Simulated assay, not measured.
Amino acid sequence: MSNVRNADKNTKTVPHVVKEEIIAAGKWARLDKTTYVDPSGKTRTWETVKRTTRQSHTATDGVQILAILNRAHHKDFVVLVKQFRPPMGCYTLEFPAGLIDDNESAETTALRELKEETGYKGEVVRVSPVMCLDPGLSNCTTQFVMVNINGDDPDNLNPTQELEFIDVILLPLDGFQIRIDELLQKEDMVVDAKVYIYSVALQAFTKPSEVPAVRQ
């Protein structure tokens, strides 16, 4: 009898979504009531935010662009953007980014958005797998597209943005995290988690002795 009880106790249900019902919908996003079965076999509900703009040919909503500006005899710079984000109610410091349009690849979207937001033309060197952004709230996904920008190219000497309300901020790759911290102390804005996590990882990789110790 005890063996049967132990077998039942160790048996787990494969969690899965049963159905999704629209609670509210707008032009760009909607709120769903998601009914699912958890690993114990219990049926539960969740509130899920979804974009309405995802294209049928891709599992990705958009791209994040990690663009490095290279110039001869100069330091390398990370290209960031500052813009007002209504959900936050303030300005944010982010990587250039954008949604994938119909019949676009992640690479095409990245180069298009980079040109629109910053004026720079670049070359794609790597594309990440599809990644989730905030899985506890939304099914939104993104891909990181790494881009090299030749700052000595005539097209990049005086870049012209196509979007009016975005400021381009160039921060040196060397000491990237320190420069972000300094910028946040001077300006009233919030840094995107992806930018800051990248800065911490970069610091840990290039100058591990300068990474602040974590208190236990």
Score class of each variant (00 low, 15 high):
Thr35Tyr: 15
Thr35Asn: 08
Thr35Pro: 09
Tyr36Met: 06
Tyr36Glu: 07
Val37Asn: 00
Val37Gly: 06
Val37Gln: 11
Asp38Val: 11
Pro39Arg: 02
Ser40Gly: 01
Gly41Trp: 10
Lys42His: 15
Lys42Tyr: 14
Arg44Tyr: 03
Arg44Gly: 08
Arg44Gln: 07
Arg44Val: 06
Thr45Gly: 02
Thr45His: 03
Glu47Asn: 11
Thr48Val: 08
Val49Asp: 00
Val49Phe: 14
Lys50Ile: 05
Thr52Ile: 12
Thr52Pro: 00
Thr53Glu: 11
Thr53Asp: 03
Arg54Ile: 10
Gln55Leu: 03
Ser56Asn: 14
Ser56Met: 05
Ser56Tyr: 01
Thr58Ser: 02
Thr58His: 10
Ala59Thr: 09
Thr60Ala: 09
Thr60Lys: 03
Thr60Gly: 07
Thr60Asn: 13
Thr60Val: 14
Asp61Cys: 10
Gly62Lys: 07
Gly62Val: 14
Gln64Ser: 14
Gln64Met: 15
Ile65Lys: 12
Leu66Trp: 09
Leu66Gly: 05
Ala67Asp: 00
Ala67Thr: 03
Ile68Ala: 13
Leu69Trp: 02
Leu69His: 06
Arg71Cys: 08
Ala72Phe: 14
Ala72Ser: 13
His73Thr: 11
His73Asn: 15
His74Gly: 06
His74Pro: 11
Asp76Phe: 01
Asp76Asn: 08
Asp76Lys: 06
Asp76Gly: 03
Asp76Leu: 08
Asp76His: 15
Phe77Glu: 13
Phe77Lys: 10
Val78Gly: 09
Val79Ile: 07
Val79Ala: 04
Leu80Thr: 01
Leu80Glu: 00
Val81Phe: 01
Val81Pro: 01
Val81Ile: 15
Lys82Val: 12
Gln83Pro: 08
Gln83Val: 07
Phe84Glu: 02
Arg85Pro: 00
Arg85Ile: 02
Arg85Ser: 14
Arg85Ala: 07
Arg85Thr: 09
Pro87Glu: 06
Pro87Asp: 05
Pro87Ala: 15
Pro87Val: 15
Gly89Phe: 08
Cys90Glu: 10
Tyr91Gln: 09
Tyr91Cys: 07
Thr92Gly: 03
Leu93Gly: 07
Leu93Trp: 06
Glu94Cys: 12
Phe95His: 08
Phe95Pro: 08
Pro96Trp: 02
